[in-house]
Design a protein around this nucleic acid. Sequence first.
DNA 1: GCATATACAGACAGGTCTGTCTATTTGCAA
DNA 2: TTGCAAATAGACAGACCTGTCTGTATATGC
Lengths: 198, 198
Amino acid sequence: MASRRDDLVETALRLFYTSGFNATGIDKILAEAGVAKMTLYKHFRSKEELILAVLNRRDEQFRNWLMGEMEKASSDPRERLLAMFDALESWFRGQAFKGLGFNGCAFINASSEFGDPQHPAHRTAAEHKQRIVDYLERLCREAGAADPHELAERLALLKEGAIVTAHVRGMPEAARTAKGIAAELISAKTAPASVPSA
Amino acid sequence: MASRRDDLVETALRLFYTSGFNATGIDKILAEAGVAKMTLYKHFRSKEELILAVLNRRDEQFRNWLMGEMEKASSDPRERLLAMFDALESWFRGQAFKGLGFNGCAFINASSEFGDPQHPAHRTAAEHKQRIVDYLERLCREAGAADPHELAERLALLKEGAIVTAHVRGMPEAARTAKGIAAELISAKTAPASVPSA
DNA sequence: GCATATACAGACAGGTCTGTCTATTTGCAA
DNA sequence: TTGCAAATAGACAGACCTGTCTGTATATGC
């Protein structure tokens, strides 16, 4: 069964996210998951491999959640882009992931702990961020942006700024600060959705 | 002499910043600083106290550097605000602090490793960020912003976004992305410096 | 019922960590 | 020169870490 493996990854995600990667020992994960040590080392060659599995799971979980929130908010790409910041705010307030309070972005945290850009965890974090920019760029293109790449980079930067501000300073309202800027950017740099009378 | 204490804090800053707080052991700091263990524990009660001393030193060092760069760039508050992003870019490219490459923001890193908002290191990080916002707000007021508080929060958020993007994705050019947004905000939300003909 | 794969508990090795201790040496000042 | 303060080296305790190992139990397929 892959269920033991999933239990491990799920528990490790929670503990790593809550207490950090280096500060969380293997034994604690095993105890909370109710899994024997040899089972872990059958599925993963090392703690580092477990960390990478956790980051990959988080990448999937987080992007599914974020895209879902954006897509259920509206079918207009401009409104979808703006809805990202509403989703962020509910995350900052602990309303997004069941059982996981807000402790910043797991990928920013990973890049902090594994500062070497060549470290696999740092690279995985960079890939996650790039995937989100790619998604934003698609939406910017749909929204008729003159320079979808530039606008996507700008919106992504606002997202990172909001996450860090919310986490370091304990200010979930940073999402609204970012949304205000984003709204001005989007209305200045994109054409509105085509309307019948146009 | 306070010189031993300074050696410790300086060396600890470099190692903590390069390799992380939890991942850097006391013994490594002592070996590189050439200081005996008992000397450390005479000046600091624990590793945590050393970490706090390091963060306080970094706060002073970083803000002095940043304000210095901004103030030497221009005497116009609007241009000073924009100059922040040029300073950030030189930091991202490793040209700001002698002997310290760019490894993200020490305070964001501290908040990542010490995720609990009540942790002294996390609180110190929040204070550092607040001091920078306060400085930006003064400049925004000088620049004639209608809402200096809001504009300062926006510029600070852009700064955090640039730092994270530069670090996680290895993109020092994020400073220019942020500067582009900031330029539009500043010119839209402030009055230009008074000119003789006005 | 039996075989095989999987997971279990728990000991263990070898290393690292923080913080304490002792005993010695250095440097400065009177 | 003598005395004192401060720093030194290095051992040590106790805890924790990762990763390996042994032997036992459980569960599923034939």
